[in-house]
Design a binder for these strands. Structure first.
Lengths: 160, 160
DNA sequence: ATCAATGCAAATAATTTGCAAAAAG
DNA sequence: CTTTTTGCAAATTATTTGCATTGAT
């Protein structure tokens, strides 16, 4: 995961802040570092926990106040997997249109992108009189490979 | 909407209750009547409101206790449209695999089904080592037809 | 009779907010 | 300096639950 360079998500977010006249505080720096140093999904509580390990001064309120900034920037997306709390996905900078397959057994989540599905979505939407702004696709299923082999050989399979 | 006959969703739900040794109370009858006498999406609070109009004895607790039964029966699905509370969709009896297009401007929701997308989902899932159990697709967009004409001529367009 | 289901009100859990103090630009 | 941001603790909101009572079978 690129953590440097002008186009890394972290840098993009700092630009987003600057462009809106928002300030770069120590706490925001920590939160952003944490968010973009992983490709894992996370909850608000996890983000608080991870951030506090780096800097005890990060409060729950600040985490909750920073999350809307992250989603507004388009670099992180709020997800609902039917759990009691929201889950955030930091992979929208690299794959702005990706979908999820969720294993009902092991809860593992695999991300993928499908140009073909995107085309169909556009086509159908057009016929219904809509222009597409975004999309959200979750497939629920069983990870049979995982059950058979103890591990899913397709892990990390991004791109389609 | 069919409210009678052996295969109507209401009847299916009553069978579901019976099959599990659950009892048919006056309150459940009202709630179920309300749910399956519309094809509109609703929130828990709306369902309480509508039910209370028919029978003041329906309490919030009973609504909240009945909703999981409705979703467990497979006839109603819990949805998340990024709002503060959950939304329920009573159209899963007639269209068990439908998707949603949501207009970002007028918040109108159109349901559709696509066999082609379903096929692609299966194909992709298989390649990633998953067997598909279910699917959840939301397309966010702008209902331009609505803006131009004051009404969406494609309203109710189910099936694709 | 028996056991599930109810209403009520209190309890939870996630998230939000008011406010005075601290820090960024 | 000015204005944003922070932490704290209290508030809010949707949903859940304990309990004594009611009602279905």
């Amino acid at each position: 995961m690129a953590t440097d360079g002008p186009l890394c998500p972290k840098r993009k977010f700092l630009d987003f802040l600057g462009g809106r006249g928002l300030r770069l505080t120590a706490q925001r720096r920590v939160i952003v570092d944490v968010v973009f140093s992983t490709d894992q999904h996370f909850t608000a509580e996890q983000l608080l926990d991870w951030s506090r390990r780096r800097d005890r001064s990060v409060s729950r309120a600040t985490v909750y106040r920073t999350l809307p900034l992250l989603t507004a920037s388009g670099l992180v997306r709020e997800m609902d997997f039917g759990k009691d709390c929201k889950v955030y996905d930091p992979n929208y900078a690299s794959h702005p249109n990706h979908s999820h397959i969720i294993c009902q057994d092991c809860e593992k989540i695999v991300e993928f992108e499908s140009e073909k599905i995107a085309r169909l979505e556009n086509e159908i939407s057009l016929q219904l009189g809509f222009s597409v702004a975004g999309q959200r696709l979750q497939i629920m299923g069983s990870c049979e490979a995982l059950k058979k082999e103890g591990t899913c050989k397709n892990r990390g399979g991004l791109e389609r």
